[in-house]
Design a protein around this nucleic acid. Sequence first.
DNA 1: GCCCAATGTCGAC
DNA 2: TCGACCTTGGGCA
Length: 281
Amino acid sequence: MPEGHTIHRLAQDYAARFADRGPVRVTSPQGKFTGAAALLDGSPLHTADAHGKHLFLGFRDPAPEHTDWIHIHLGLFGKVTLGDIGPRTPAPPPTDTVRLRLAGPTAYVDLRGPTTCALITDTEKQAVHARLGPDPLRTDHHADPAAAYRRISRSRTTIAALLMDQKVVAGVGNVYRAEVLFRHGIDPYRPGRDITSAEWDAIWTDLVALMREGVRTNRIDTVRPEHTPEAMGRPPRVDDHGGEVYVYRRADRPCHICGGEIRTADLAARNLFWCPTCQRN
DNA sequence: GCCCAATGTCGAC
DNA sequence: TCGACCTTGGGCA
C-alpha cells in the first residue's frame, strides 16, 4: 500500500520502536541483504527519514563521523509488518521472504518484497533527494510547491502524468493523483502548462492536508464530510484497501456527487480514474 | 493448483 | 511502449 503517506508513517514507526533504544539485531532471512545486514547488526538505529516513496534508516557510524543508511523502496508490492515482543511473546520466526528484519527488546519489523533495500552512504542519500521533487509531507526545503509548479507550468504533459512523476512531486501515487484531481474538478488530460498558479496552490495545499491525514490514519480517505457513507446514506466501500474515495477503482460506478459513471483509462501503464462530468475544469 | 492485478520504477528498443 | 522485477491475495477450476 505504498504512497508517500505509507512511507512517512513507516519512518515514524521504525523510529518510535528503535531510534536510540540500544543495539538492533539486523538480519536478512531471505538472503539478499545478508552482507549489509551483518555489517549493521548490533548497531543502534539513529534516525529514520522519508522523502516521497523512499525510506531511509540511519545507523550512525561512530569512528568517522557519518551515517550509514538502509535505503528502502517498496515498489508496487513491498510490505512492512510490525510486531511487539514481550516476555511471553517472542518474535515469530521470519518467513523465507523477509528481506530485512530489525529486532530490539520490545519490537520487530519485517520487510518483504521491496524493489530497493540497499546500504548507502550520506552522499548517495543526497543524490536520491536531488532527483526527487518536493514532498507535501516534508516540512523542510524539500517541500517547496513552487519547485513543482516551475516544471508543471512548462510542460505539455498531462497533469495526471505530471502528478505521478516523482521528479515533479514526490510521494503522490495513483490514488492521491486520481482523488486530488477529482476534488478540484480538474480534467486529468489537461496539459501542465494550462494549470494556473492558483489551481496548483490549491492542489498542493489539499495534498498536504490529505496526505497528513493519511499518515495519521495509515489509509487514504479523500471524501469530504458531506460525501461520507453516513452523510449520504450509501453503503461504505467494500472491496478494498480501507479508505473512502471518489473515483479510484470505482470505474462504471456512480459518482458520489453527480451520479454519472466514473471512467477509467490507461495512462502511462497505470489506471486512471475520473468523473467526466465533475472534472471539466 | 493457475492466472491475474496491485497505492511503483527502471531500462531496453 | 513494453517487459522485468519484487510478493501477496483473490477468483476460478
